[in-house]
């Protein structure tokens, strides 16, 4: 899928009324796992589950308005973190609401793998992102299935 001109935020009200799963990624600018977290999240949002998922920029909980802070109340939310500080999970729960699932990229790094690129991820780092995306997808499917019941 070509992501040209795709915007995730700024959907119409009608689009947002359809049940979606919220995915909130850590921004992790200062560590490679942050970039892996972001790539995995975008893989879900733009390619694997574009009609079932939505997102919000994490720091928007503070900078945005009341509507932005209701994100986790409006959507069952999965957070993706790059390290043990769990910023995405903690900030989402502090400012918005309880999350349905929390994923830490480091749980998907195999022994001997050591990501080091913050930009232009190599094949091994993209592989890790793929494994994280698999886990997100599994959880999105689980939530959607529960919603149907």
């Amino acid at each position: 899928m070509d992501d040209k001109d795709t915007e995730i935020a700024g959907r119409t009200e009608i689009e947002n009324r359809i049940k979606k799963v919220g995915i909130v990624s850590c921004s992790g600018e200062d560590l490679p796992e942050g970039s892996i977290s972001r790539l995995a999240t975008l893989d879900i949002l733009l390619k694997r589950k574009p009609f079932d998922t939505t997102t919000i920029c994490l720091p928007l909980f503070i900078a945005g308005g009341e509507g932005d802070r209701l994100f986790a109340k409006n959507f069952p939310t999965i957070t993706i973190d790059g390290c043990e500080k769990l910023c995405a999970k903690k900030a989402t729960e502090k400012f918005s609401g309880k999350v349905s699932h929390s994923i830490n990229v480091r749980d998907f790094i195999k022994e001997g793998e050591k990501p080091f690129n913050k930009r232009n991820l190599n094949e091994k780092e993209k592989e890790i992102a793929g494994r994280v995306a698999d886990e997100i997808e599994k959880n999105v499917d689980g939530i959607l299935l529960e919603e149907q019941d």
């Binding site: 850590c26 921004s27 992790g28 600018e29 200062d30 560590l31 942050g34 994490l58 720091p59 909980f61 503070i62 500080k85 910023c87 995405a88 903690k90 900030a91 913050k118 930009r119």
Partner: peptide, 22 residues
């Protein structure tokens, strides 16, 4: 990243914004 890695190496760094907001 362009500034930190290439143009201003040693003078500039970054921090995770989410860590700051936490």
């Amino acid at each position: 990243y362009e500034i930190i890695d290439n143009l201003s190496k040693g003078k500039a760094e970054t921090v995770c914004l989410a860590l700051l907001m936490s």
